[in-house]
């Protein structure tokens, strides 16, 4: 009986250890491509939201109390990263940032947004979104995203009755929660930039 227990324990342990070591190896091997892929996706998104940017420079860490400050404004969002954009002449042209909004229907929505130096929103591009297919996922279609582009407003709002003014966004039908999350995320980003000046 005892010998059997030892044998069972030992073989199970052996399998687990081998599996663990193997996983460690695979993790090491795939770490690089995963990081590179994430980098690539982000860079691509930055290029999309700021087509005429010549270079992006790091701006240092986001202050710790940012989430709190955004919370005071009623946004449940995080600013993950911000980079300064320079044009080909090396002048300040605006910012690109990565925002995660926590109010999505299917979890967090992460997107990149580009804002010109004069405060005009250049565009948004989704990095990670898992909303309901056919409803919330329609947010990734150009028709929705383009509503944000090229507008210089301090705060967007959404409407179900057809946008009538510059700062209004047509809500996705059947996906108000997604619309709300994206709009709030964009507003959080705009608010954060306004605190920089």
């Amino acid at each position: 009986m005892n010998r059997e227990i030892i044998r069972n324990t030992f073989s199970l342990m052996l399998i687990t250890v081998i599996a663990g070591v193997l996983l460690g190896l695979v993790y090491e091997v795939t770490k690089e491509p995963i990081a590179r892929e994430k980098m690539r996706a982000k860079e691509e998104a930055y290029k999309t939201v700021f087509a005429d940017a010549a270079s992006f420079t790091e701006m240092g860490a986001i202050p710790e109390d940012t989430k709190e400050k955004l919370g005071e404004q009623g946004y449940d969002a995080d600013i993950d990263e911000i980079m300064e954009v320079k044009d080909s002449g090396g002048n300040h042209a605006g910012y690109v940032l990565t925002v995660t909004d926590h109010e999505g229907y299917g979890g967090d929505i992460q997107f990149a947004m580009g804002v010109k130096a004069d405060g005009t929103l250049n565009g948004i591009s989704f990095l990670s979104i898992s909303e309901t297919a056919g409803l919330g996922m329609k947010a990734t279609e150009d028709k929705f995203k383009e509503q944000f582009a090229g507008k210089k407003v301090s705060k967007f709002s959404y409407t179900k009755k057809g946008a009538s003014s510059e700062d209004e966004i047509d809500a996705l039908s059947g996906a108000t929660i997604t619309t709300n999350a994206v709009t709030n995320g964009v507003n959080a980003g705009l608010y954060y930039i306004s605190t920089l000046q």
């Binding site: 199970l12 399998i15 687990t16 599996a19 193997l22 996983l23 695979v26 993790y27 795939t30 491509p33 995963i34 590179r36 892929e37 994430k38 996706a41």
Partner: peptide, 19 residues
Amino acid sequence: VIVASFVTIVQFLLEGFGP
């Protein structure tokens, strides 16, 4: 354990090559 290891491996590969 065996299945979970393969799942994790495939998960890494997907994350890296089919994001």
